[in-house]
Amino acid sequence: MRDRLRVLDWRICLPATALCVVGVLLVWSSTRAMPPEGSHTHLWRQIAYSGAGLALMTILAGADRWSLRAWGPPAYLTGCLGLAAVLSPLGVTVNGSRSWLNLGVLQFQPSELAKPALVLALAALLGAAPDGERRRRASGLPAALAVAGVPLGLVMLQPDLGTALILAATTLSMIVIAGTPGRSIGLLAGGALGAAALAWWLDLLKPHQVQRLLVFADPAADPQGAGYNAIQALETIGSGGLLGRGLFHGDQTGGRFVPEQHTDFIYTVAGEELGFAGAAVVLVLLWSILWRGLRIAAQAATPYDRLVAGGIVCWLATQATINIGMVLGLAPIIGVPLPLVSYGGSSVVSCLAAAGILMSVRGEHRAAPRTHVIWS
């Protein structure tokens, strides 16, 4: 047990655990009035999810580079198969998106598994060339895009625009971190913008997705319809003032004025009940993990390690930014959970697994001499 604890990076472990505790409390508060009242079903599930995720984080923290490389292909294949299975009769539709897989005793979201799996797969591809060999990095770009395109395409078929944006942002960031020439990145960005414009022009987006994007510009245009969530979220998070109304004492939260307040809009509960100060603490805890991840990426001994750490940081940062942006009216409402805080086993376990992988990479660069920087 001591050896296992010794590999933990407490600058990641402590804020991650603290966010899980905050998440459990906020989920408890936001679901206490949900029927059947007094069952505390969501509370006990969130505790179980967090415990399982922390255990997985501890296991992954002790993994070496070779283990991560070995787990990458099976994880990627499993993630893609799960995304494909979602489109079969096993898939469950929630809020207009067929994103869940129902296995009877277990219901989970394969797209959450696809996030760390994609990071490991792209790191193996883009990190194969030693530092400085830009030509080989550019030549590996088509393969990387093909690897990213499979889960991205399957996610768009669900359709889950939020997860698709996270996967796309993570892929682009890892391509940049890999040292791909600027011309190739420019062509890729131009192609992505062209594809987005074409999708809009051909009406490939679902009606509810188009409505969310349009209402983002003016939520008051449809206050009882598509703009309701955005308006209620702003009112709820702003009602807490500096120190909040107190845990379990939020009027807006208790009245369930904000839909999905225990999942996508959990940050409104923090704003109302813990106030600006409590909501800021959540941001500080998230930022401390991201900052530590950036330091690990900067000190990585190999291109592979740097890409793994950098990809995880970009994934978590993008997801947190979109979620908080939705609550503050700075981003369209596209259904993205707040890392480690929102209710849901798939998201919590996936994010804690990412924290464990970060600690594994940190252990590798501490164990390896800096002369190994050319390793590929």
Rank of each mutant, 00 (worst) to 15 (best):
S347G: 10
A144C: 12
L234C: 09
G191C: 08
G255E: 09
L198Q: 12
V327G: 00
R45Q: 13
P219C: 02
P337N: 04
V308R: 04
G278W: 01
D3I: 15
V341R: 07
V94I: 14
L242W: 14
G271E: 05
L113D: 01
R134Q: 14
W287A: 14
P339R: 00
A61S: 06
S88K: 05
P110Q: 05
G79R: 00
E364S: 11
F257M: 09
A124V: 09
L283V: 13
V147Y: 10
R292S: 03
Q209C: 09
L213I: 15
L214A: 15
A300P: 04
G311D: 09
I324R: 01
G335W: 01
S99D: 14
Q232A: 08
L214D: 14
D9L: 03
L87D: 09
A114D: 04
G132E: 00
G194Q: 08
S39R: 04
G244K: 03
D64Y: 02
A144M: 12
R69D: 04
A217M: 14
G91Q: 00
P337T: 04
T17F: 10
G91N: 03
L154E: 03
F257H: 09
V361P: 02
L202Y: 08
D222A: 12
W315R: 05
W71M: 10
A320P: 00
Q261Y: 05
V155K: 01
D160N: 01
V336K: 00
A277R: 04
S346K: 06
Y343L: 01
P130T: 07
L19P: 02
Q211T: 14
R98H: 13
L157R: 05
S346L: 06
A129G: 10
G241Y: 12
Q107D: 02
V341A: 02
D222G: 09
P74E: 02
L193E: 07
S342M: 07
L283M: 13
P130C: 04
S376P: 05
C80H: 01
G310N: 03
R306A: 13
L43E: 00
Y49R: 02
E235F: 15
F248M: 11
L202C: 12
V7S: 12
T78M: 13
G240R: 02
L242A: 12
A63Y: 07
F276M: 10
A168W: 11
Y49D: 07
A52V: 14
P151H: 05
I357N: 01
L60S: 06
M156A: 12
V361A: 06
